[in-house]
Amino acid sequence: VQVARGYLNKEELTKEKFIVSPFKEGERIYKTGDLARWLPDGNIEYIGRKDDQVKIRGYRIELGEIENVLSSLPGVTQCCVLAKEDTVGSKRLVGYVVPEGDFDKE
């Protein structure tokens, strides 16, 4: 059973995310961005995400949005943003840029 039946006052988003269940007639399921597969023994194996979304300290973050902002900065020709674990296992965002010419880190 879902935690909710939909998004309050957001009918289109509800239709997009709460889809007809392919497993049980007459029921709905929540369509996440997670990828998984059923193993022969009946267990479900988590593979990853369909998008570049990560969760850090309870916040869902789209890495592509941060990369778009970095790419728009003058002097940045390429960039990449990753969610990396530090020495104690906490995730943090790390951005890498390729500068055009000399790079003023200020």
Rank of each mutant, 00 (worst) to 15 (best):
V76F: 03
R37L: 07
F103L: 15
N43T: 11
V98F: 07
G75L: 04
D51P: 05
D102T: 06
A83V: 01
D51I: 02
I56Q: 02
R37Y: 03
G58R: 04
V97T: 07
G89Y: 10
Q78W: 07
A83K: 01
Q53L: 09
V94T: 13
D51K: 02
K50V: 06
R49S: 02
L39C: 11
I61Q: 02
V81Y: 01
E100G: 14
A36R: 08
Q53N: 10
D86F: 05
A83S: 06
K50D: 08
R28T: 03
L73Y: 13
Q53S: 13
F103K: 07
T87H: 11
F103Y: 14
S71F: 11
K84E: 09
R60P: 08
V94K: 10
Y96D: 14
N43R: 09
A36C: 11
Y96S: 15
I56K: 02
V94Y: 03
P40A: 06
G95W: 01
E100A: 12
Y59H: 11
T87D: 08
A83I: 00
L70Q: 12
Y59L: 10
K91S: 06
I44V: 13
K50S: 12
G42N: 04
L39F: 05
N68C: 14
D52H: 12
E85C: 08
G64Q: 06
L93G: 06
E100D: 07
I47M: 07
C79A: 08
I29R: 07
V81M: 01
Y46C: 04
V88E: 14
P74D: 05
I56F: 02
I66C: 03
T77H: 08
V94H: 15
A36V: 07
I66P: 00
G64Y: 02
V54K: 00
I29S: 12
Y30K: 11
D86W: 04
C80V: 06
R57K: 14
T77E: 10
L35C: 04
L63W: 02
V81F: 00
E85H: 12
I66A: 03
I61S: 02
K31C: 12
K105A: 13
I44S: 07
E67C: 14
D51F: 00
I47N: 08
L70D: 06
Y96T: 15
I56W: 01
V94M: 09
T77Y: 04
D52N: 10
A83M: 01
C80P: 04
P74C: 04
L93Y: 04
I44H: 07
D41M: 09
K105I: 04
D34I: 09
G89K: 15
A36K: 12
I66Y: 02
V98N: 09
R92N: 10
V97H: 08
A83W: 00
D52F: 06
L82M: 09
Y59R: 14
L82E: 13
W38M: 11
A36E: 13
L82Q: 13
Y46N: 05
Q78K: 15
Y96R: 14
Y96I: 10
K50R: 15
